[in-house]
C-alpha cells in the first residue's frame, strides 16, 4: 500500500505546525479525500486529523453576522436556527448537497476545498492539468456535459462542485485562515482562483494554512433562495445552481446578489446581473436582461452548451420567485 502516517491534532496551532512537512495534508470528514486516496489521485504521506479541533461552534458576531467554525458538520450548520432564519440560502444549499450520511461527516472547511468531479480528473490514465500539471486536458474535446461555461481556460474546464460555497459567495462570506505566519481573512470570491495555466492551484491557501472558520456578515436585505438543477432528485451534482438575494420596494429592486454554481472553476458571482437588476422594476424582462448579462461571456464546449440557456432560465425563475415572495409579504 501507499504508506501514510496519521496524527490527531489537539489545537489549531499544533495542526498548522504538523502539516508543514512535505506530503502532509489535513483530513477532516474525509468524504472526498479518502475516495481520492483510494483512486491514487491524492497521495499524502502524512494526515493531520483536524476533525476534533474545537472549531465546531456557530457564534453570533457583534455586527450582526455569525462565525461558523470550520469543523462544524454540514448537517449541523444546515439545521442551525440562526442559519435557517437569517441565511436560508446557505441552509438550502447545504441540504441540496450530497446525502444525509455525507452531510453528517463533511465539515464546512472541507466542503470549501472539495475537488472537482470532472471524470478525467478521476481517471489517472487520462490527461488532466489539475491532477498532473502540464499533462493536458482530456475534457476539452472529450465528454464535457458537466463542465464550465465561464472563466475556463484551455488548460482546464472543470467546475467546482460545492453548493454551500455558492450560497456563501452570494452572502459575501470571508474565509478565516490560520498559518504559521498567523491568522488572516480572505473574501470568498478572492479565496478561489480561476484555472488559468495553473488549474492545480485552486485557492489562495498557502502551504500549511488551515481554514478555521467562515464569517458571514449580517444578512443582506431581501429574500434569499438557492435553486439547484440536477439530473435526478437527490444525490447529484448541480448542472447549474443559483444563489440569489433580492430586495425590493414597491416593485423596484433595491439590491440584489447573484451567484451561480456548476458553471465555473469557482462559485460564480455575477456583478453584471446585480448591476442590471438594481434600481429596475422586478419584471421578467429585467430578469432576462440580467440573465443575458450574467451569461454574456459564457462559452460552451459542445456537450455543455445547454448550460448557458439553463443558467439563464434558472436565474429568471429564482428572481421571479423571490420577487413574488417579496410582493406577498407587503
Amino acid at each position: 500500500m501507499r504508506p501514510f502516517t496519521y496524527e490527531r491534532a489537539t489545537d489549531p496551532r499544533a495542526a498548522v505546525a504538523a502539516v508543514s512537512r512535505t506530503g502532509a495534508k489535513f483530513i477532516s470528514g474525509g468524504t472526498n479525500l479518502l475516495d481520492l486516496m483510494k483512486l491514487d489521485i491524492e497521495q499524502p504521506s502524512h494526515l493531520v486529523d483536524i476533525s476534533r479541533l474545537p472549531l465546531k461552534n456557530i457564534e453570533e458576531l457583534p455586527e450582526g453576522g455569525i462565525r461558523i467554525g470550520a469543523q462544524a458538520a454540514n448537517s449541523d450548520v444546515a439545521a442551525d436556527r440562526r442559519v435557517r432564519t437569517r441565511y436560508p440560502v446557505l441552509s438550502e444549499a447545504l441540504v441540496a448537497g450530497a446525502s444525509g450520511q455525507l452531510r453528517n461527516m463533511a465539515s464546512i472547511g472541507g466542503n470549501l476545498l472539495q475537488r472537482t468531479r470532472c471524470p478525467y480528473f478521476y481517471d489517472t490514465a487520462a490527461a488532466c492539468n489539475k491532477r498532473v500539471p502540464g499533462s493536458g486536458c482530456a475534457a476539452l474535446d472529450g465528454f464535457n456535459r458537466v463542465h464550465a461555461i465561464l472563466g475556463a481556460s484551455d488548460a482546464c474546464i472543470a467546475v467546482h462542485p460545492s453548493d454551500m460555497a455558492v450560497a456563501m459567495t452570494a452572502l459575501e462570506a470571508e474565509i478565516e485562515l490560520l498559518g504559521d505566519q498567523g491568522a488572516r481573512r480572505v473574501a470568498i470570491d478572492d479565496f478561489y482562483r480561476l484555472p488559468g495555466d495553473t488549474p492545480h492551484i485552486e485557492t489562495v491557501l498557502q502551504p500549511g494554512e488551515m481554514i478555521t472558520g467562515v464569517i458571514l456578515p449580517a444578512p443582506p436585505p431581501g429574500r434569499q433562495g438557492y435553486r439547484k438543477v440536477r439530473d435526478r432528485a437527490s444525490y447529484a451534482f448541480a448542472l447549474v445552481s443559483v444563489a440569489a438575494v433580492v430586495a425590493a420596494e414597491r416593485g423596484t429592486i433595491t439590491a440584489a446578489r447573484v451567484a451561480f454554481g456548476g458553471v465555473a472553476h469557482k462559485p460564480w458571482r455575477s456583478v453584471e446581473a446585480e448591476r442590471i437588476l438594481t434600481g429596475q422594476p422586478a419584471t421578467m424582462a429585467n430578469f432576462r436582461a440580467a440573465a443575458e448579462a450574467a451569461m454574456a461571456q459564457a462559452v460552451g464546449r459542445g456537450h455543455n452548451d445547454f448550460k448557458i440557456e439553463l443558467a439563464k432560465r434558472t436565474l429568471c425563475r429564482s428572481l421571479a420567485q423571490l420577487a413574488g415572495e417579496l410582493r406577498r409579504q407587503l
Partner: peptide
C-alpha cells in the same frame, strides 16, 4: 469516450440511477 474506448462516467456518482427521491 470515442477517442479511447473508455467509459467516462464509471462510478455510481456519475452513472445515474434513480435514488429514493426519484
Amino acid at each position: 469516450d470515442t477517442r479511447t474506448g473508455a467509459f467516462v462516467n464509471r462510478d455510481l456518482a456519475e452513472y445515474l440511477v434513480p435514488v429514493n427521491a426519484d
